[in-house]
C-alpha cells in the first residue's frame, strides 16, 4: 500500500500541522505534467524515509482544497513544502529528480 497520504482540508491539520515527524507536502494537480512525473519519486521517497519523514500530497484542482492552496500561496506546481512542528521550513518549486529531492530533505532535516 502506498505510504503517501492523500490530504484534504479535513485531515490537513491532523496529518501535517500536528504530525510528530516532518511532513513533505506536494501540492499538485492532475493536468500538470511535471506533477505527474513527480508521483513515483514521492512514492519511492515515502518508502525510503518511512518513520523519518511523512510524504503527503494534496490535489489543488479539488475545489475543497483550494483554500489551503491559497493560504500557502501556491502559484506554481509541483510545489513541495516541508513542514516541521506545523511550520514550513523549506520549499521546492518544480520537478526534482529523486536524488536531488532526497539530498534536499537530508540537508534540511540534518538526517
Amino acid at each position: 500500500m502506498s505510504k503517501v497520504i492523500d490530504l484534504s482540508s479535513e485531515n490537513f491539520q491532523k496529518e501535517v500541522l500536528e504530525s510528530k515527524i516532518p511532513v513533505l507536502v506536494d501540492f499538485w494537480a492532475p493536468w500538470c505534467g511535471p506533477c505527474r512525473m513527480m508521483a513515483p519519486v514521492l512514492e519511492d521517497l515515502a518508502g525510503e524515509f518511512d518513520g523519518q519523514v511523512q510524504v503527503a500530497k494534496i490535489d489543488v484542482e479539488n475545489p475543497a482544497n483550494q483554500a489551503l492552496a491559497a493560504q500557502y500561496q501556491i502559484m506554481s506546481i509541483p510545489n513541495m513544502k516541508l513542514f516541521k512542528n506545523g511550520q514550513v521550513i523549506g520549499e521546492l518549486v518544480g520537478f526534482r529528480p529523486k536524488e536531488e529531492l532526497k539530498k534536499e530533505l537530508q540537508k534540511q532535516l540534518g538526517i
Binding site: 506554481s76 506546481i77 510545489n79 518549486v93
Partner: peptide, 16 residues
C-alpha cells in the same frame, strides 16, 4: 519572484 507570479510553465500554473 519565480514561483510567486513568474512562471515558465503555463500548463502547470495557468489554473492559479
Amino acid at each position: 519572484l519565480a514561483g510567486k507570479g513568474v512562471s515558465y510553465c503555463a500548463t502547470c500554473d495557468g489554473f492559479f
